[in-house]
């Protein structure tokens, strides 16, 4: 290779490697494992150490505000998980009974999940059926 082009290769390599390193460290810091409540219980021991995102439905009437913390329970396939949310942000608008919630944090040995981030989607999602007994139309117009 000519010396002229070597400069470009070295320059590009330095940039790419630096970015790759930064990406790797950012990845290690912010990665979390996404799972449902059932999956959490299936591999309990591994999950104590990991940062987790757990999805489940908010059990009706389980939301209790306790000072700045919010306690509630999420469930999925008959498995329930008690959650304490201690986040800097207020819970989202969509966080109501029966909402599909995703809580982010750590699973403690006491069986309580401590979350510091949360997302929630309304149970009455728009792309779902209009009402009971109504099905998406097929071929007939």
């Amino acid at each position: 290779m000519k010396r002229k082009q070597l400069k470009f290769v070295v320059g590009s390599a330095v940039i790419v490697l630096t970015l790759a390193f930064l990406g790797y460290s950012g990845f290690q810091e912010s990665k979390s494992y996404y799972m449902t409540v059932t999956e959490l219980y299936a591999k309990k021991n591994e999950n104590y150490e990991r940062r987790l995102k757990v999805a489940g439905d908010v059990v009706p009437n389980s939301i209790v505000r306790d000072g700045k913390a919010i306690k509630f329970t999420i469930s999925q396939e008959n498995n329930t998980l008690p959650v304490v949310y201690i986040g800097t942000d207020a819970p989202p608008d969509t966080f109501v009974d029966r909402a599909q919630a995703v809580v982010e944090g750590n699973y403690g040995h006491d069986g309580v999940f401590t979350a510091n981030h949360m997302q929630a989607k309304c149970a009455s999602k728009y792309e779902k059926e209009v009402a009971a007994g109504v099905r998406k139309g097929g071929e007939e117009y």
């Binding site: 990406g23 912010s30 979390s32 996404y34």
Partner: peptide, 30 residues
Amino acid sequence: WGTMFPVISEAVTGDKVTVGPPFFNRVNVP
């Protein structure tokens, strides 16, 4: 990669691994 990682990691290892803003910021700020 950051966006698709949950999909890719689930396909490869079975664990759905997500990455957060620190990853994106670490790379994109510089």
